[in-house]
Design a binder for these strands. Structure first.
Lengths: 253, 253
DNA sequence: TAATGTGAAGTTTTTCACAGCG
DNA sequence: CGCTGTGAAAAACTTCACATTA
């Protein structure tokens, strides 16, 4: 889902598959919950259930990080929390700026999940002069004019764009020019960035559209199921044989 | 990224790959923009660029929908908009409810991208009695007590959960019991749902963590690059041969 | 003995490359 | 000729199943 063509193409690095990286935060969340309940160890089966994946996948994922488990026992919760945090780079502090303090930007500024994971909202930036100085989530909003200075003064390398679509590319360009190399984009636009800059996007409307697709298909299947049931009933009448576990098998030509 | 174990396992339906479905909204957005600029046709190359994918992938994706292009010319914008909309089920009206009208819920209620895509915010629901009756985005907030009735009266099949993590599963259960079969979850929890219910999740903190992983790796690579450059320089001094296109090849043991 | 770690098999997704068609 | 549509190859990802080991 990340856009920017990224990282060295083939050279071996520690090569953790992207799909695995995307699941590490999930495992981390589940592990953190266990840690808070002072659970000392957990099996792949249990942890997988808590994270909503299957256990083979989880074990394979962990195998890319190293051998952190104990056969016959499971994984040490605290140790795993540390290892995954380190792998994700969460043992360091990441100052982020949020640009565009509308409804969504404000929601993000107030979102607790950031602070708890090593992310610190270093600044809020908006183009509306009327917003300047107003505190949101306890942080005063600053004006876009100072964007470059803010980035540099705070050593920000991660930027969050929550502006309207029309402003997103321009904001993105300025962020990148000022030194930001990772961008989380909430604006419904494709951002173009130079090589070496990562973009991830979150598009609320896209998620709903994907749900709608499946929803529609469910409706279609229901209708189909009725037809199949009717066909099966008819067949049963015909042959005197009731329906059983087998699929009705409507073979297409 | 969808969680719920979904749909018939193997039976052939119209079998559009999930990865393709996830990109259709992207294409649709790009096409809509072209349509607004009254562009009549577009090539796979152009459209792919606008959507941020490569053209082979786009053509393959479209091939699952049918043959909607014209060789030597490209795709008719309006026609494709219609076909994709239909495929995604956006030609019908989808009433959605948003549960949890905090910062994020309010942002979602105000988000313009919904209405423009066939999604209609049918109701806003919150557990705080003080919120009841207050209008958000012009829609009065209703109390959780009436959730079931609201779902049924409005024929809602898609629910958005924007509550705190602690309340999410309970809200989810009630939504499902009331007949909702697709859920977009913003709460940082794994929801468990019965078969036949789709869940997609959006986790802001997870996206940032993935960015942090790559950001960290960039920092590592920079250091590595410096070392490699130094090594190359040293080698050049040694042999009198300048560095060329080949990889420095630091073979591990 | 219970549960990890992992080759190997299976599946899905992406990319290639070009035949075919307007 | 230019661009689509698509088999076939390649790559990425998931699942299986079991040898291995604390």
């Amino acid at each position: 889902m990340a856009t920017g063509r990224t990282h060295r193409p083939a050279t071996r690095s520690r090569g953790i598959p992207e799909a695995t990286v995307a699941r590490l935060p999930l495992y981390l969340r589940a592990l953190t919950a266990l840690s808070e309940r002072s659970v000392p160890t957990v099996s792949s089966e249990e942890l997988a259930a808590a994270a909503g994946v299957n256990s083979a996948k989880l074990r394979k994922d962990f195998s890319y990080l190293g051998s952190y488990g104990t056969r016959g026992v499971g994984y040490d919760v605290e140790y795993l929390v540390y290892q995954i945090s380190r792998e994700l780079g969460l043992t360091q502090d990441w100052p982020v700026v949020i640009v565009g303090i509308g409804n969504l930007g404000a929601a993000l500024a107030n979102y607790g999940g950031f602070a708890s994971r090593g992310f610190r909202v270093a600044a809020l930036i908006d183009a509306d002069p009327a917003m300047a100085g107003k505190p949101v989530a306890g942080i005063p909003v600053q004006h876009t004019d100072d964007l470059e200075k803010i980035i540099k003064d705070n050593g920000v390398s991660i930027g969050v764009i929550a502006t309207p679509a029309g402003a997103a590319q321009q904001v993105c360009d300025r962020l990148v020019a000022a030194g930001v190399t990772s961008i989380l984009n909430f604006a419904p636009t494709v951002l173009s960035v130079p090589d070496g800059v990562d973009v991830r996007k979150v598009d609320l409307s896209i998620e709903l559209q994907i749900l709608a697709f499946h929803e529609q298909r469910k409706a279609g299947e229901e209708a189909e199921a009725v037809l199949e049931a009717e066909a099966a009933a008819a067949a049963a009448k015909e042959t005197g044989k009731g329906p059983d576990g087998d699929v009705p098998a409507v073979m297409p030509a």
